[in-house]
Amino acid sequence: MSSDAPDSSLTKSPAGFLYVLLIAATAVNLTANLIADVTLFRLDATLCPPDVTMCHPDLTPCHPEQAQPAGWVSWLIRISKPMLVPALAGILFLSTRGVASTIRRGSFYVALLFCWVGDIALLISTAVPSTEPDYFFFVGLGAFGVAHLFFIWSYAPRDKQELRWMSFVYGLPFVVYGYTLYSVIYHSLVEPKQHATVQALSIAGYMVVLLSNGVTALLRLRANTQIRESSASILAGVVLFVQSDSIIAITRYVSVMPLERFSIMATYILGLYLMVRGCFLEPREGQLSRPTAQPEARPETPPTMQAAA
């Protein structure tokens, strides 16, 4: 993660400390989630067999979140996860302070703040006894939904003339993907249960905002030809964010998956990092793409003046 940091951040404090903190928190979190996946997968499968909704569509879907890591593994997850977003925000601030950018960084910082709130809410959701509905889960869902709105505003193209109608056609894969995923989880959302309609509408609204973030990142890539690497990094990060949320939706409402906790956090952390990376690459790409000023040519001395001299 450190090779793209400007000004050799790893060798300087406090930026170097933040990179070390990010790498350490990532390693601890992913390791703890991997251990939880390996030790709890059989229990997850017992609580919710992968084919339960397919073979018995009339059964009320179960929730794999009932099997949660405990002991020191749980504490490692709870300690490391809240460190991730603050470390990324600090790295972004130290890498871009005093540098002009087309990205609205204030909005981006607010988005990271809501991501952190969502992380805390989801941690609480897994720590407290499960309820129906899971209020902390939907608090986290709402926080991430607001975060995506601020992400959209932070790097949406400023000049609407740069957008071409054909660019929106390239966003259709996000629409088709959202329709497909929602169709897969819809049966579990509308089962006869309390607050079923509110839950289904909440998930649908969040998916619209999430996929709009992906379309916005794609439009930025299409509109800004001089900052390709920055825009591509942001788009890749958003796509990984979408994948992380998709795994959450599948494992929560459809079936358990091998290494689900590890996969969710790995795609989430890498996605956020790539989005932050795109933010501090953008000013550097903008400077490199500007034409360098050519030195003014000195007027030649007329031959008559040279002879007189």
Rank of each mutant, 00 (worst) to 15 (best):
I79Q: 09
S130Q: 13
R261Q: 08
I79H: 07
F137V: 12
L270A: 13
Q243G: 14
L94M: 06
E191S: 13
A196N: 12
W153F: 07
A89C: 09
G214Y: 00
F41H: 11
V239F: 08
L211C: 04
A111N: 09
F144C: 06
K160G: 10
I264K: 00
T102W: 00
P283R: 07
L40H: 02
E282Y: 00
C115M: 15
P157W: 01
R78D: 01
D245A: 10
S101H: 03
A156H: 11
P283L: 03
A143H: 04
I248W: 05
L122N: 06
A196T: 05
R277H: 07
V215D: 09
Y135N: 12
A236V: 03
S230K: 03
P303H: 06
L18C: 06
L274R: 09
E282H: 07
A111V: 03
L288Y: 04
I227D: 02
S188I: 00
V110G: 08
F168K: 06
S212R: 00
Y177D: 15
A25W: 00
E285F: 00
L94N: 02
N29V: 01
L76C: 15
T26D: 05
A5M: 11
L141V: 04
D245V: 02
W153L: 14
I124E: 09
Q68Y: 05
I227T: 09
D58Y: 05
L281M: 11
A266Q: 06
I185Q: 12
M305N: 13
L288I: 08
A70H: 11
L272K: 14
T31Y: 05
